[in-house]
Design a protein around this nucleic acid. Structure first.
Lengths: 259, 259
DNA sequence: GAGTGGTCTAGACCACACT
DNA sequence: GTGTGGTCTAGACCACTCC
């Protein structure tokens, strides 16, 4: 048979004095990279179906099995969603019945479910401090957006979030658009600003409530709160959100699975 | 070709009035279950190699590809470890250069690394309270073992752990054996008691230090501490450990990846 | 060189969704 | 029925480890 058009090549030229990184990348990883590039470039939009495995196999001149393995990994990474009998779809934060994919909060009773109300406190444009800029990998002094909001269960405030975003990516973001949007905030980011959150890293610690946090969360000053710092990434591991949440964990907890 | 000896059958007889669980399980999942059963039964011990894919294919009378997919999932579940050119090995908590596979603590500076000393405070046998028994799925009043220990970085205490184990599984467990063992505690459980920890669930919250915790962790009473409740499971989702850790998070944090 | 896991292919058939 | 993803097979070759 004819050789595939995508030949097995070193994935990247290792710099001289390289410590021994992977020298080759298998075909299916190169296909994966090509599909990822199309996702990043917007060739297929969130919620849409991508071409069938057979079509992609023809397009990339490889076998269906190789495309399959590439898609397998992308599905594992939560970039694609497979639906048997229908097709493979671009994952989306909207339309997803799981309201908050990244929120690990759960009530102490009940199973996993939380129904939370949002209340936006503030949305302002400012210049990134040195620390914010470092996390977002922008320059200090560049424009940024800060959002402050509460999550409530009934009328009990549970989470106070402070969110920082690069101003250049979120130009038209206002408190009104945040309030008006139905669905998770990451769905808004995706559909209105073309920024798709892929993965995130969180750092948790226990802190004492300061005066402002105590007021918003209606707890005594000094009460223990769970601090959750999150940095979210879009394609190519580019950081696009810094978030600091203070969780009131008297009747809720942060759940995590280890394996 | 001859039909495979493991035929495609309903994975389990759905009870009458079943809500529509999966009716079939593919061949590779049945192979996976067979391999898991051998692991559980001790046919291959932690750290040992299992038979090659070809040998297993012959044994189960399926193709190598089907065995391969079963092993793929078991490797993803961290039950097996593949080593190219050598073989497939039973995962183990001992001999693993990652000292604490389940400990998500990291120093605020530096990258991921923590080098912690252990100090065992107490190891006593008692009868399970109703709550402990509920988590361990044993009967209240049945024998249990409680271990209390500190984790220190240098001479700074960071974590105070209280651990409860079913007494029937951990008969000869003493403070001496805990102190003498080199390597992670789960390695001891595995080699000395034949109990392999497969996965765990954690619940995190912020709490105020009580008098005892404050003393052990050398923090003021009422200081915020990160409470980490863990329930660990062995094969067949059987709970075999309940653990409550109090983390002093002034200079450390609990890290978590979301995707 | 022999043995192991890793990749790639090609083709057959099954399960599922839509029409 | 048609088209999609899901499973299974068989065989070839590659990359790595150890002898």
């Amino acid at each position: 048979m004819p050789p595939p058009s995508v030949t097995l090549t070193p994935s990247a030229e290792p710099p001289a004095g390289d410590a021994g990184g992977p020298a080759f990348s298998p075909l299916y990883r190169q296909i994966k990279a090509l599909i990822t590039r199309s996702l990043q470039g917007g060739e297929w939009r969130p919620g849409e179906a991508i071409p069938s495995e057979m079509e992609l196999a023809v397009r990339y001149k490889v076998s269906q099995g190789t495309v399959r393995k590439a898609i397998d990994e992308l599905a594992t990474d939560n970039l694609l969603v497979r639906r048997q009998g229908k097709g493979t779809y671009v994952a989306t934060h909207a339309e997803q019945h799981i309201q908050y994919r990244f929120l690990r909060l759960a009530p102490d009773d009940g199973e996993g479910e939380v129904r939370l109300q949002r209340r936006f406190i503030d949305c302002r444009r400012l210049r990134a401090s040195a620390e914010i800029a470092r996390w977002l990998e922008i320059k200090a002094g560049e424009p940024a957006v800060q959002v402050r909001r509460l999550l409530l269960r009934g009328d009990q405030p549970i989470v106070l979030d402070d969110i920082w975003l690069p101003g250049t990516l979120f130009k038209g973001l206002t408190a009104e658009r945040l309030s008006d949007y139905r669905g998770p905030m990451y769905g808004l980011f995706e559909s209105e600003f073309g920024v798709r959150m892929i993965r995130a890293e969180e750092r948790l610690r226990a802190v004492a409530a300061d005066a402002a946090a105590a007021r918003w969360l209606t707890v005594p000053e000094g009460a223990p709160l769970l601090s959750v710092e999150r940095i979210s990434f879009t394609y190519a591991d580019r950081p696009v959100e810094l978030r600091r949440g203070l969780y009131h964990t008297a009747n809720h907890h942060y759940r995590n699975a280890l394996s």
